[in-house]
Amino acid sequence: MGSEILRPPGHDRSPSTIELPAPTAWPIVSAFGLTLVFAGLVTSASVSILGAILAIAGCVGWFREVLPHEKHESVQVEERVPVVATSRPEVTQVRWMTEELHRARLPLEIYPISAGIKGGLAGSVAMAVLAVMYGIISGHGVWYPINLLSAGFFPARTTVEQIAAFHWDALIIATIIHLLCSVLVGLLYGVALPMFPRHPVLLGGAIAPVLWSGLLHSILDAINPVLNQRIDWLWFVLSQIGFGVVAGIVVSRQTRVHTWQSLPLGVRAGIEVSGRVHQDNEDGH
């Protein structure tokens, strides 16, 4: 079977001599001449003249070696050729993953995009509930966390009273920020969770919120200074965990779909590729 896959050098009947391009001095002569042409610009005209002569001679000699027929030399083929072999001939098959594929292209299944969107939206509700609870418990009211989220857009509202009051524009901006971020993070969960198949809720509910909170902690002063000054990090982390647990549970309960990695690009792109799918199916791919 191996010889069908690659015909190793020497395994077939190889020729005793091989024709190769003959060595020649004309390239170096041409290159040296051309260099002298340029060097003459900063030294002496005679250097350029000498260079031009050499370059022309090099070109003429070169052309005469390739026109009308390229000059070759015969090289004797060595008798000894290496045997392609390995000290690791055994191959362990990953049959526990699949019985169908010759090569497992992991992951075999992923969550659909809709799973990430659903998870993000569900997580956004949980996070909103926790944030509003914080507003009520802290005594600032339900609009306080909403206004804080959109505070970067309204730098004039700096006092606690202003931030605790209802503003329809702040509500719209905060809702957009909240939904957009939630859906994007939900999509990220949808992509990442198959890589951690054993503990999806741990990833969603603990690891990711802590990482996300750490990242925000380092950059929040730049993107929303008002929120950075007033944020209660304990509640923030709790709301992130709430988001993560709910999003993780929702995403992990969705039905996975097979990836198309084993299919050729043309098929995945929906382009008609004659014969390819049929051939792959015959091979059991």
Partner: peptide, 24 residues
């Protein structure tokens, strides 16, 4: 050697030597 290969190889995958070493 100067000619690289006594006979030009023919390949059927991205890892031709893997195929030769693991014909099964």
């Amino acid at each position: 050697p100067v000619y690289n290969f006594a006979t030009i190889p023919e390949v059927k995958s991205r890892r031709p030597l893997w195929d030769l070493k693991h014909p099964d």
